[in-house]
Each structure stands twice: as structure tokens, then as C-alpha cells.
């Protein structure tokens, strides 16, 4: 089964309901506005990573923020607000990808492999040790993530933005469970090349899930 076909198989559900956390008004509208602007760079980064389109990312984030401000009285805490904002941005991103899927080839969503390597290199200092801001952190509650439909939407988006060859090798290894030897032979790649591609895929997906799910979720409680 081809990758796009696989994605289409589990058709994405309609808009999910917004988390229902109604608390007494603990914060003023002004502090909410400040909080929301504080999240803006993070939201933009997430949307840009998924869409590879600055204008569309800006639109998605702007719409999410406007929607959040309209429903602001429903939120009493900072973490609920952050989770909600990310939820809205995810929906906007998914809507956009669906829309684009009808008019543009899937290949136009692909990230160049060189771009991925550049993004990975940027996580390190000159000496090839983690830069303090991008040092990986353990992912909390993976079991809980697996049970949430929204998590799978993020996962699908992260897969969708991988370059075709990267995604193909990753899926042969992790989805189909083939050994690397077999993958190299089938695709006529050297073992070293296969390893590089698998590392690129894992590093990229790790980064995407950290930003799109596990990082956003950390503030939930």
C-alpha cells in the first residue's frame, strides 16, 4: 500500500470537541491576551514545521488565536489554554493539508532531506553536543498518547512531511518490520545509506512529535 493511500485509509475524524474545562474566572482578559501572545512563537513553529508554508502557518495560528480569544472565559488556567490553542492549530493544519491534498501533488508537501539534516544539525553546538535549548527531554505518558485520536493525527502529519524516500525506508523498517538488509537490497541502497536514512527519519519524527505533541502536552496538568 502506498503511503498516501495508507493515510487516506483511516480518514480523519471531523472537528473534535474543545476540552471542556470550565472554572471560575481566575484570570483577567488582559492577562489571557498576554499569555496567548507568549505562545505565539511556539504555535507558529509547530504550524510551519507541519505546513512548510509560512503564509499558511501564519493564517492557521491567527485563526486559532482569534478562536481562543472568543472562548476565553471558558479557561481558568495556563496549561488548559495552551493545550487548547495547540488543539485548534492542529485542526487548522489538518484542514489545510486536506484542502491542499485535493489540489496539489503530495510530493509538494515533502521536505528535502538536506533541510531535515540542517534542522537536525541546528540542535547541536559546534562541538556536536546538545545545545541547552534543544536538549531532548523524556516523553511523558506515551501510553496515554496512544489512546488519543489527536495524537494519531499529529503522528500522521509528522509522517506526511517526511521526504518520500525517508518515509518509505522508515515504514519498511518500523511498520512492515523488515530487516535493514532486506530494505537495502530492495531499494538498492548501501547499508550505510540505509542507516543514515533511518536515523534521519527517527530524528525528524522525534522532533516533530516533541513539538507537536509531547512538548505541548507537558503543560497540561
Amino acid at each position: 500500500m502506498s503511503f498516501p493511500a495508507m493515510l487516506k485509509k483511516g480518514a480523519l475524524p471531523p472537528l473534535l470537541s474543545v476540552p471542556n474545562r470550565i472554572h471560575p474566572h481566575a484570570m483577567t482578559a488582559i492577562s489571557y491576551t498576554e499569555l496567548i501572545s507568549g505562545f505565539r512563537p511556539q504555535l507558529l513553529k509547530f504550524a510551519r514545521l507541519q505546513l512548510q508554508d509560512d503564509a499558511a502557518a501564519e493564517d492557521a495560528v491567527q485563526e486559532a488565536i482569534e478562536a481562543a480569544l472568543k472562548g476565553i472565559e471558558r479557561f481558568a488556567g495556563r496549561s488548559a489554554l495552551k493545550t487548547w490553542l495547540f488543539t485548534i492549530v492542529r485542526h487548522k493544519v489538518i484542514d489545510f493539508l486536506r484542502e491542499r491534498g485535493r489540489t496539489v501533488q503530495v510530493s509538494s508537501l515533502e521536505r528535502d532531506e538536506a533541510d531535515m539534516d540542517e534542522a537536525f544539525d541546528a540542535l547541536f553546538r559546534e562541538n556536536e553536543h546538545w545545545s541547552p535549548v534543544s536538549r531532548p527531554r523524556p516523553w511523558g505518558n506515551p501510553e496515554e498518547a496512544l489512546e488519543q485520536q489527536q495524537f494519531w493525527q499529529v503522528f500522521e502529519i509528522c509522517l506526511e512531511v517526511l521526504p518520500a524516500r525517508t518515509a518509505r525506508v522508515f515504514m519498511m523498517r518500523e511498520f512492515l518490520g523488515l530487516e535493514t538488509d532486506e530494505i537495502c537490497t530492495t531499494l538498492d541502497l548501501s547499508t550505510g545509506n540505509c542507516n543514515v536514512i533511518l536515523h534521519r527519519a527517527r530524528a525528524g519524527l522525534r522532533q516533530c512529535l516533541s513539538e507537536g505533541w509531547f512538548g505541548a502536552e507537558a503543560a497540561r496538568c
Partner: peptide
């Protein structure tokens, strides 16, 4: 940082297997 990277890619494998 690298211990967390290891945990992350282990979870990624688990996620991929659950996906299928």
C-alpha cells in the same frame, strides 16, 4: 539529553508498531 533521545526513539518504535 541522549538518554531522553533514546527514550523518545523507543517510544517512536512502539508508536509505529501500534499504528500498524
Amino acid at each position: 539529553g541522549c538518554r531522553a533521545f533514546r527514550q523518545n526513539i523507543y517510544v517512536l518504535r512502539k508508536v509505529s508498531r501500534s499504528f500498524m
